[in-house]
Amino acid sequence: MLQISCPYCGARAEIEFRCGGQAHLERPGPHDQVSDRQWAEYLFYRDNPKGVSLERWVHRFGCRQWFNVARSTLTHEILAVYGMGEQPPQLEGTKR
């Protein structure tokens, strides 16, 4: 069971949170100028790295705030927690 440090509430157990998937997705638009391919990329295609994953989480049963997490999908180690809208810190193994 993961322990995630909510930037607002502190360290809490996994069951208080919900993972919202890959962070830093750009919603393409305007809608009438987006190709089917672009839309599919945005909706379904994911990096799905075996290693450091940048993802967004919400403290669902807590402050209800969203934030970003850099987490290893292999060891589940959490390398960084940073705010929505912030760029990820430089980490070894990240794509960006």
């Binding site: 295609y45 994911r46 790295p49 075996k50």
Partner: peptide, 18 residues
């Protein structure tokens, strides 16, 4: 579960989450 990893080696992404 490792399909995305191999796809990345081949240079493409997939609509998959592991």
């Amino acid at each position: 579960g490792n399909t995305s990893v191999l796809a990345e080696l081949a240079g493409f992404r997939l609509p998959i989450i592991s």
